[in-house]
Nucleic acid binder design. Sequence first.
RNA 1: GGAGGGAUGGCCGAGCGGCCUAAGGCGCCUGUCUUGAAAACAGGUAUGGAGCAAUCCAUCGUGGGUUCGAAUCCCACUCCCUCCGCCA
Length: 430
Amino acid sequence: MIDLRLVREDPEKVRAALLKRGADIDLNMLLHLDQQRRETLTEVEGMKARRNQVSAQISGLRAENRSTDTLIEEMKEVSSRIKTLDSLVVDIETQIAAFMDELPNIPDEDVPPGGKENNEIIRTWWHKPDFNYQILEHVELAEKLGLIDYERGVKLGGANFWLYKGEGALIEWGLLNYFIDSHLQDGYEFILPPHILRYACGYAAGQFPKFADDVFHISQKDSRQEGQFLLPTAETALINLHQDEILEESELPKKYFAFTPCYRKEVGSYRATERGTMRGHQFNKVEMFQFTTPENSDGAHLELLEKAEKLVQGLGLHYQVTKLAAQDMSGAMAKTYDVEIWIPSLGRYTEVSSVSNARDYQARRGKIRFRRSENRKIEFVHTLNASGLATSRLIVGLIEQNQQSDGSLVIPEVLRRWVGKDRIYPKTNT
RNA sequence: GGAGGGAUGGCCGAGCGGCCUAAGGCGCCUGUCUUGAAAACAGGUAUGGAGCAAUCCAUCGUGGGUUCGAAUCCCACUCCCUCCGCCA
């Protein structure tokens, strides 16, 4: 949620910022509603003040046994008028909320306008692996090495599911542990949250109402607003840790990370370009999260990016960092960097971490505030999140970049203590 | 799944339909006293909104209702606790 005051004070600036996201939004209706709301409030509050006053008067007159009939008659009318105006205010506020709920965040100044094609490559780490033999792509490799069983995954869960087995499961488990160790070392607090969340969690994260259809709802209740759903990312849980709380400035920044599977509907077909574990209904991810003061969120953003990169570097994989253009970012975010690893078989990079600063957009929706030590004033916190990391795409890059000419796979140094070996050879039977 | 109890400010806890503008306590902040601290005493300590401001309005789990007037009465819902049953 952006600040309504910002719209009120400088609608052109807001409109221009949202234009970067490709949405030309007419704010006049909103401004009109806002105006109307304040006018109505002024009127109805005056009447309420009068009513409160007269109520006290009536009790005084009663005590003296004097007549209150005319006052009561007057108040009957005032009360009924208040009722009408109150419901008018509710109606206006519902309309304002519906509008504001849909407005995406304002992109930062330095975020390029437009879509994907305007994403900026910030830097590239290491170089593309040089294969002087015919390489295999990840689906075939994973099957030959006996790491992932796509067919049996589908047998269990249906389309767009897979399962890790044997050494594949060990690699997966090793990756998660490698991430967890790294975050613990950096002083982040480990959270294992519920995987089933309430509607309000999705709202605060900025995923609802717009993307309510993209998650798995588990409740039988008709009203989506009371139902529960499977989390699409641990971010949805972590943002709500401090929902409706007022933190002390001295507690900030709060640094968390969580491990959860992520459950997503992923409606639409991507199969042609995204085979194997590139996109599924369930994948594992470790998520980092920070609550900071506004002045410290840029620093935190860079810290998170650095942490995500460090993880990929530790695995020795070639990657690039891009700054997303406005239209390519999630609606809740003001600025996002993607860490993208090189997928040799596709000849392109794919996202393994999205590192985002939501500024106060999510905090407003979740009412997450803090109190300044200096003057006790209350402000919204800034929230930031970053994958650290998602395994399902990382593993694609990992097995493709580390494949050898004999069809074997070299296990990155940092994973060997979990996998128990430094190299995996193709299985004769799968 | 069954039965019962509860939800009030940062926390505990009182609260006859009308000085509730929410008692009292704890905690916290400030001041007096003190070399300093403790103690004692005095004062202050919620959130959101409207307004240039004075000030006003709203909020006692949530939503509705009764009433001139609701923390208080009525209805529905949500959440929490206790006990019983069932079960990983």
